[in-house]
């Protein structure tokens, strides 16, 4: 039974964010009648979906030990293009067009990183400015309203589930399949663990890395669409500094910044956790100024437990050269 107990305590350590989530749900549930309702749960997921979608793309990037700071700008650029140029188009035509533009944005990052060998941090820092600049130019530095059909899409529900959640679910399933069940997905993990070994093993590292940044670009644009269709207008700060909650969601879900560890399910959990906290604070009429404080403390706790767990695991896994009697 001691093996079982050992496994159990490790399970507790490994699922600290999950426990944190449970505690929060109980606390908020006790403080507000409206919190623990199915409608509110759908609401939370609905509000979390754009962050979750972008964070899924970011997860791919983090898995290869990269980073993409330009997702917020990409989001704003897609929203601006949708609101300014694609007004007449029905969403089913306009959305794929915008997603392709997002892919192009990602491809620019990818080109700089793989072909010109500029560090990802700097590349995406620069395209953050450029993307935002172009978007501001298109929008004329004004609010960009979306067409009625886009808003109708944002408010629509299918089978009782809001459209944003559908988009989110589709993105999630595709991402899961790609990461778990394709050669490309496994190669993403391989490159994250050791890029040099990956190249020696015959993996086309450049191609995989290129694709990863493109995926992140598409996800950012789709996230922008989803968020835009929910808020009706894109102000000039739309998507501003979104890269931080997005990275936070991925890290909260157990994805390592150093590559090779994590996955999209965790990321989705992270995004929902952040949104749950925000929602719970609203429901319990907390001072709005303390939202960011509470959220950052929660992210901190999650990362803190994760680091302690890693430290403990490393100590446990240190190679034993003697077998000692118990």
């Amino acid at each position: 039974m001691s093996g079982f107990r050992g496994k159990f305590s490790l399970l507790v350590l490994q699922n600290a964010p999950l426990l944190l989530f449970a505690v929060l749900v109980i606390v908020f549930g006790l403080m507000s009648d409206r919190f623990l309702t199915p409608i509110n749960f759908v609401n939370i997921v609905n509000q979390a979906s754009h962050i979750a979608i972008i964070a899924i793309g970011m997860t791919f990037v983090l898995l290869i030990a990269g980073i993409d700071l330009s997702v917020g700008a990409n989001m704003y650029l897609s929203a601006a293009i949708l609101g300014v140029f694609l007004v007449g188009m029905p969403p089913l035509v306009a959305f794929p067009v915008v997603a392709l533009l997002g892919l192009a944005f990602g491809a620019v990052n990818a080109f700089m990183i793989t072909q010109l060998r500029v560090a990802a941090f700097i590349t995406t820092l620069a395209t953050l400015f450029i993307g935002r600049g172009i978007a501001l130019y298109f929008s004329g530095n004004k609010m960009v309203p979306f067409s009625k059909s886009v808003l109708a899409f944002g408010r629509a529900t299918y089978l009782g589930v809001p459209s944003a959640i559908w988009v989110f679910a589709i993105v999630l399933i595709i991402a899961l399949v790609v990461l778990k069940l394709t050669t490309f997905g496994r190669q993403v993990y391989a490159i994250g663990a050791d890029p040099d070994a990956a190249a020696k093993a015959g993996i086309n590292v450049k191609r995989v890395v290129f694709t990863v940044y493109c995926i992140c670009g598409v996800c950012a644009a789709v996230g922008g669409l989803v968020s835009g269709s929910q808020v009706a207008v894109a102000s000039s700060t739309f998507g501003f500094q979104k890269e931080f909650p997005v990275i936070a969601a991925a890290v909260l879900g157990g994805t390592s910044l150093f590559g090779g560890r994590g996955g999209v399910l965790g990321t989705v959990f992270g995004a929902v956790l952040i949104q749950t906290v925000e929602n719970g604070l609203v429901m319990t009429n907390a001072n709005p100024y303390i939202y960011p404080l509470v959220i950052s403390v929660i992210i901190f706790i999650a990362v803190f437990t994760d680091s302690s767990r890693t430290t403990v695991l490393e100590r446990l896994e240190r190679r034993k050269i003697r077998v000692e009697p118990d």
Binding site: F129, I130, G133, I134, A135, L136, Y137, N141
Partner: peptide, 10 residues
């Protein structure tokens, strides 16, 4: 305009 400043700086 701010738009160009951003783009050029980037």
């Amino acid at each position: 305009p701010i738009a160009s400043v951003f783009a050029i700086k980037g």
